[in-house]
């Protein structure tokens, strides 16, 4: 195994493009190193991204959104006041990852690129309308987060491409987001179902919404029908029931050791209702 420490994304992309065998990027390493030690992957080239300038920074973009470096650990997101005020649902998704120890290392980018349908930070990013900046041998491009994962463990990144930043749009007024996951325990578990809702209000009425579900399909899923079910409503009981129904209907989960099809489908509706109510409270200025 060869270990590389490029200092620019262009160099990293070059290394990856030239590598012949199995390549892995190293952000926090909380997936890669665990997989390596368990004998699940034996990369030929391991490209550490943490020596690239700016990868640990969170910066305001010109349009009022945010640019999050690919090595920013969960704990730094939680400590960032501006980001927490704008996108509490994105931050809380990332903060659910692992434990204090894991939080010191694990990143949004790693969580996304590991490609798990149960990745906790991804539904929040999708609901937020986040995108990624991709650097490849031929330059950079951007892609909506929901288009990054294509199947369990697989992403839309081409050989030699890597993510160079995560981009969050400007939050704007009267808006809120939230992420909830279901696990049987209180921590250190993998989402059986995850649900994120981001919305904007005019008074009590929802004017914009995005809903994303995790762990109920081969990839994290944007569910436009769920957004449609609440846009124009005040999230009254019938609207919530309709939301739960379309959220459940959007599920195509599997039966496995972590949960059954029936359970995941049912609970996806329950969590989506609950997440929508939290997002609404946040949009109205509730900081909880």
């Amino acid at each position: 195994m060869r270990y590389h420490t490029p200092t620019t994304f262009e160099d990293a992309a070059q290394l990856a493009a030239q590598a012949k065998g199995l390549t892995r990027f190293l952000a926090g390493g909380t997936d890669v190193l665990v997989q390596l030690r368990a004998g699940m992957v034996q990369p030929d080239d391991l490209i550490d991204l943490k020596k690239i300038a700016g990868v640990s920074e969170i910066t305001r973009t010109d349009d009022g959104g945010w640019r999050i470096g690919v090595a920013v650990p969960g704990i730094a997101l939680g400590a960032h006041e501006g980001l927490c005020a704008d996108w509490p649902g994105v931050v809380e998704g990332m903060e659910l990852v692992g434990s204090t120890q894991i939080q010191g290392r694990a990143t949004l980018t790693g969580n996304l690129c590991n490609g798990s349908p149960a990745a906790d930070s991804v539904p929040g990013l999708v609901a937020a309308g986040a995108s990624v900046e991709i650097t490849g041998p031929g330059g950079t491009r951007t892609l909506p987060v929901e288009d990054v994962p294509v199947s369990p463990g697989k992403t839309a990144l081409k050989a030699g491409e890597l993510i160079s930043a995560i981009l969050l749009p400007p939050r704007g007024e009267n808006a809120g987001d939230a992420y909830l996951r279901f696990i049987p325990r209180t921590e250190m578990d993998i989402a059986v179902v995850g649900s994120a809702v981001s919305l904007r209000l005019d008074g009590d009425t929802v004017t914009e919404a995005r809903v994303a579900l995790g762990a109920v399909a081969p990839t994290v899923k944007l569910v436009p029908e769920a957004a449609d079910a609440i846009i124009g409503t005040t999230l009254d009981e019938p609207a919530l029931e309709a939301l739960a129904k379309v959220a459940s209907a959007a599920c195509s989960p599997i039966d496995d050791k972590r949960g059954t099809v029936a359970f995941r489908t049912e609970v996806a509706g329950v969590l989506t209702k609950r997440a929508a109510l939290i997002a609404k409270a946040r949009a109205k200025g509730d900081t909880a």
């Binding site: 325990r185 209180t186 921590e187 578990d189 496995d256 050791k257």
Partner: peptide, 15 residues
């Protein structure tokens, strides 16, 4: 199927 503590779910302290 569940050969690690991630899926062999013993209670954690906060449970």
């Amino acid at each position: 199927q569940n050969t690690v503590f991630l899926d062999y779910r013993v209670p954690v302290a906060s449970d």
